[in-house]
Each structure stands twice: as structure tokens, then as C-alpha cells.
Design a protein around this nucleic acid. Structure first.
Lengths: 369, 369
DNA sequence: GCTTGTACTTGAAACGCATCAAAGGGGCCG
DNA sequence: CGGCCCCTTTGATGCGTTTCAAGTACAAGC
């Protein structure tokens, strides 16, 4: 268990310590045969560089940290995926931490990453990042994802309020008279969606709106429960349009309604938010508003790179992705041929690596202030 | 950007360096007022401990690394979730790396974690871990997940071959005459599933079996494509039972079949593997064989803890989870009342934290050899 | 008043590596 | 043969912690 260190390799290879270090970090500086000798010794001894020591001695490492509120949420995964690909493209590693819907944990991992000589850190925060006093000190470049900060800082966000507005407008054009919004607005993002819905509906006092809490974690089971409850209402108290604050919720609602013999979208239309491909893979397509998660992750890394390369003191810079109606796709299931609807969704998963499908929807509002 | 270090805090607080360190690591050793003074100074200065230095000086940190082949796979997420909860329970952090289906990357992150003074590392390897020569040296406790190693070492795995067998037996009892297996057996796990299917079917030469490659990543889109192709076959060449090597594939197949007007499970039965709740949230339930991912992650951390606490040279230890028919749940959609089927699935997501539902299915085969 | 003990606090010594100024070696030219 | 330059290698230094033996201050007991 005694770990072999760089000095062991040096001794064994009959060279000096610094030479081995060079073999690792600046191989071009070595004579090919020296390099070969050292590499062989490294392999023979099973030497693994101690990352802690490297980082301590060498400053930042080429790696980013990403703190996510939860891993089983499709949107977060899209972010992770986009961030990962972009990071690798620049030769950086990406380490992910799961805050598990716990803001203490979120803070914990944030500090952890900041203290690990990471080159940069990204968070998809659960609450307003202004609540993180640590951030203010910014010992390392940081980018907030999917949220708007009022404090100086970098972020890239989808316009959640716009998503709510779009969903509401969708409901209006479908002739909805009674809308039920399902979900707990536990996070800022969800709150903004609800806000957007309310704002859009403010002009339509004739439309009845109802918001139903869905339990702590907004699970499909929560959605199912509420869907069942809705199904059991007398027909005249039943909404004609249900909005799930997340797709997972919405899919739960759909399951319940169908189970109870209520036709979707015949009697009740259901829409979700997130553009969560995993929630769609069932055979009943969901109307959904899809923020470009992959793109957000990608842009996040780009902002990180910018800060690193300029080395300038972080200027305030915001990117808002999908802030306009045309950029946040709302698809009404009932308007489109089934097949056309399902296939693009499915295919979207396959093409997340290309990202070209979202590139067109990204609007860089540039630096303001 | 000049980082504040422990000596700054010490100077500012008028105490010595070691005292500040104690405040961080052994607060019980300090006089309450000293502790308070130091903590205030820390907050005032915005001091963040340099993790690299801590790790270098202090040996291992209380954190685990987990290398996953892909993040958007429900099973991997279950593992991550189980590992996370168990790790937190012991006061450990969990850092996740996405190998992105790339074995070079997998190796890279593995080395990275091993070199970071992590207390332990877990991998869900894409290929046989015997291919990782690094492992042999084991400078840090390591546990392989969801795979069987022939080399000495720790692993916890679901019995993938048994899963295949179970699915095959399911097909047999349903009176299948023509089975199509969909998916690329790119990973050992999938290979074992196929193997299990073949073995079980060896006793039934009358049943026709066909394996169709689904493209590199086994996406829902791949499944959809193959489903469409199956749908277009003349009725007598069409299988009566389709097995998706993953649920995502299976759900794609279902979508395609339904789109093309083929009744599921009326004309064609479809089954998947993974027990992937996200793939189920549509309203058509899938027959699936569910390996207890959450439990695998949990047990993995437990094995890590064991190695750490005993500090004994790692003895060989294997845990196989769900190695018997009764432990791997096979649910035939057509046999069960719709409602009963869907609800437990949905509810399962909500209760992943409890884990009691899988505890019963875990069999510890103990150490052999 | 002296001893012994207790409760904190101190500061120097690692930890394993990257860095970089300096030394070494060899070839080339004068 | 000496001087110069370039290519390669060297090893001392410091990165920010933790640890731990040694120190201090104070209280209690005799």
C-alpha cells in the first residue's frame, strides 16, 4: 500500500526528480530516450501522480466542478452533458457533485470545489445565488446556470418566466377556461415559471387558475396523485388544461388521468416544462416547453474559459438562452402528427453531441451594466 | 484574487497557525471563545481551505469518486443515488465523473481519482476491469460496480446473465415463437444479458431468435428505428416478442410499433431491461427486469467503508445483488392491472431514499476464494 | 510555595510535486 | 585548443495544510 512517488521513479530510473516531473508535464523538453526510460519505469512501478501535490505546487488544474441539484432530472443531465463535451473540447476534466436538493450540501460542494484549485466552478443553484456569501469572494471563476443573479457575476440562464408565459399563451390559444398548475415552486426556476403564467393570464381574468402543491420533490408519483385527484372531480370542476411545472410531474398527471379513463388531450390537455426527453419516451407525447439544457452547459463552460483566458478580473457577463418565444419551443401535441412529434424528440437525444439544434436558439445578450 | 490562507487568518486572529487548523479539524480541542474568534475571522476574510494542501498534508480526504459510463442512463443514476446517500451517511463526499462511453476517458478519470487522495473509488466499467492494469496496484480502495471481475478485487454486481434468462423465460411462458433482441451488446453487461437469453432458449430450439444491432449508443431513437423496421415486416416475419437490451431501447420500439398501428402487447409483446423509472413514465407500461441500481451503489460504498475501516490489505470480496429469479423482478405488463403496475413504478422513484424495497432482494454471497 | 496535573496553544517538520535558475555536456567555430 | 552556444538535466525552493512534540498558563492539592 506504500505509494510510489516521483522520487522513487527518479531513483529507479537513475535520473533526477525534476526530470521525471518534466516527463509528465513537458515531455517535449526531454530527449526521447530519457522520456522512454522514465515512462517505462513509471509503468513498471505503477506510479500515479499525486493530484493534490500537483495542484498545490502547480496552481490550478485543468478541471471544472459542476454542482447539480439532482441527478435524476433530465434538464440537469442535459446541462452536465453540454458542459462535459465543451470542457473536454478544451482539454478540461469535469467533476460533478450532486447536491441532492439540499442547500447545505450545495454550499458544501461549492466550497469544496473552490478549495480544490479547480479552474472553474459551475452551479445550477436551487435558490438565489445571492444567498451564497462565499461567491462574493470568488477565489475561482464561477458561473451560475439556469438562474439569474442580481449580484455581479457570470450566469447563463434560460428565461424561465418566458417559459411560463409561453405555456400560458399556449393554453389561451387552445381556448382553456380553467387551468391547473401542478408542482411545488420550491426552486427559483419554478417560481419564475409560475410567475410567467400568472403574468400572461393577468390579461385574461375570465380564465380560472389554480395552483396545486405537489409534495416536496415534484416526483412523477406526486403528479400521479394530483392527476388522480383531478380525475375524481365532478366534470364541471375539472380543469381543461393542466400545467406540470416539470415534465416528470406532467407525465405523472397524464398517467393518472388515462388510468381514470379521462382522455388526454380530449377532455384535459396537459403540458409540462423542461423538454425532458426521458419523460417523453413513453408513447403519449407531452406538450412541453424545452429550455436548451445542453446549450446552457456548453455556454457555461465557455464563460469559464473566457474568464480563465482573459485572466481579467471577472467582468459582469450574462448570457440568456432562449429568452424569446421562438427560441423556447412549445409543441402542442394535438396539433401535430403523432409521428412527427415523437420522432424528433427521440432523435434529439441521439444528437445532443452535435448541439447544432440548439445553437440557433442561443441568444447572447452580451454584457450589460 | 489573492487567496487568503490559513496564516492570514492566524495573523488576523492573533493566534498561531496550528490553532486555526485545529479550529477546522478538531474544534473540540479549542476554548470556545478562541473558536468563536477564529470562526469570525474566517468568515470576515472569506477564507476557504485549500483542499489540495489539506489532502497532501493530511492523507486521504473523506470523499469517494464514482466513474460512470454515461449520465443519462437511469441505471447509472440509481447507482449514483444509492452511492451518494450511503456516502453522506458516513460523512463522505461523492464526486462523479462521466466517462461518456469512452474507455480512454474512463481510465483517465480513474487515475485522476486515484491520484486525488480519494478515500475510495468506484467504477461502473464499460468493459472488463481486468483491462485496467492500474487497478492491480490499488493505491486506494476500489470497488467495481455492475460487473464481475476475474482479478482479485471487490465488486458488487447485478447478475446480468440471470436477467437475460428471466426475460427469456418470461417470453417462453408467454408462448413466444419468434423473439427479437434489440440493442448493441457494446458493454459486458449487455453481452451477459444476451448470453442469458441464448442459454435459456437453448432448451427451446423451436423458438426463433434474432438479434438486431441498434447503433452505437442504444438510444431511444435507435429503438424507434428498429421498431419501425419490425412494424413494416409482413405479419408472418414479425416477431411476437421483442426484448430491448435497455428500457430506453424498448420504449423506442414501443413508440414505433404503436405509431405504425401495431398493438402492444396485443400483436407484439415488448420487454426491456434496467428497471429504468424514467423510461416508464409514459403511460404505456413496459415489461422490464429491474436490477437494483440503488442498492448496488449503496453496497459499493459499504464495501469501500469496509476496506477503509479494516485497513487490512483488501481481501477479495464479491457481492452479487439479485442473482436469483425471485430477486430480479420481472413484471409482465399484460398480467397485471394497469393501475397496480404503474403506480408502484412511479412510487418507487419517491422512495429511493428508503431503499428498503431493494434490501430484501440483496443477497450477500460473502467472500469466496 | 511547590508540585502535579489539566487545558490550550505553539511552531517546526513533513506531505509530493512543479518550477526555475543554474549546472552540465557536447558540438561548432575560430 | 579555447570559447561560445544550445540542449538537457539537476536540485533547492515553496505551495498551504496537518500533525505532534513541546511549550505555556493556570488551578488544585499538599
Amino acid at each position: 500500500m506504500a505509494k510510489v512517488k516521483i522520487s522513487d521513479v527518479a531513483r529507479e530510473a537513475g535520473v533526477s526528480l525534476g526530470t521525471v516531473s518534466n516527463a509528465l508535464n513537458h515531455p517535449e523538453k526531454l530527449r526521447p530516450e530519457t522520456l522512454k526510460l522514465i515512462n517505462e519505469t513509471i509503468n513498471r512501478l505503477g506510479y500515479l501522480p499525486n493530484q493534490s501535490a500537483r495542484q498545490l505546487a502547480g496552481g490550478a488544474t485543468k478541471s471544472f466542478g459542476l454542482v447539480l441539484p439532482r441527478l435524476d432530472h433530465g434538464f440537469s443531465l442535459q446541462i452536465a452533458s453540454g458542459a462535459h463535451n465543451e470542457a473536454r473540447k478544451h482539454g478540461y476534466d469535469l467533476l460533478i457533485a450532486n447536491a441532492d436538493n439540499d442547500d447545505i450540501l450545495e454550499d458544501h460542494y461549492l466550497r469544496y470545489f473552490m478549495g480544490t484549485q479547480m479552474s472553474g466552478v459551475m452551479v445550477q443553484p436551487m435558490a438565489s445565488p445571492d444567498w451564497h456569501p462565499v461567491m462574493a469572494k470568488m477565489p475561482v471563476p464561477i458561473v451560475h446556470l439556469d438562474i439569474h443573479c442580481s449580484e455581479p457575476g457570470y450566469y447563463v440562464a434560460a428565461d424561465n418566466e418566458a417559459q411560463g408565459r409561453i405555456i400560458a399563451e399556449l393554453a389561451i390559444t387552445r381556448g382553456a377556461h380553467h387551468i391547473v398548475v401542478v408542482g411545488r415552486a420550491a426552486f427559483m426556476q419554478l417560481t419564475l415559471r409560475v410567475l410567467g403564467i400568472h403574468k400572461a393570464l393577468a390579461l385574461h381574468p375570465d380564465i380560472k387558475i389554480e395552483v396545486i402543491d405537489a409534495g416536496e420533490w415534484n416526483t412523477a408519483a406526486d403528479g400521479y396523485g394530483i392527476g388522480a385527484q383531478i380525475a375524481e372531480r365532478p366534470a364541471d370542476e375539472r380543469p381543461d388544461f393542466v400545467v406540470g411545472l416539470t415534465d416528470v410531474l406532467a407525465s405523472g398527471v397524464v398517467s393518472a388521468l388515462v388510468d381514470k379513463g379521462i382522455s388526454v388531450p380530449g377532455q384535459v390537455r396537459v403540458a409540462g416544462c423542461d423538454g425532458n426527453p426521458l419523460a417523453w419516451s413513453g408513447s403519449v407525447p407531452l406538450t412541453t416547453v424545452a429550455p436548451p439544457g445542453y446549450e446552457i452547459g456548453r455556454k457555461g463552460v465557455q464563460l469559464l474559459m473566457e474568464q480563465i483566458e482573459n485572466k481579467a478580473p471577472a467582468k459582469i457577463k450574462h448570457i440568456r438562452v432562449g429568452s424569446a418565444a421562438r427560441t423556447v419551443t412549445a409543441v402542442a401535441a394535438e396539433d401535430i402528427n403523432r409521428q412527427e412529434l415523437v420522432r424528433p424528440f427521440l432523435l434529439e437525444r441521439a444528437s445532443t453531441q452535435a448541439s447544432s439544434q440548439t445553437d440557433a436558439t442561443a441568444i447572447n445578450l452580451g454584457a450589460y451594466l
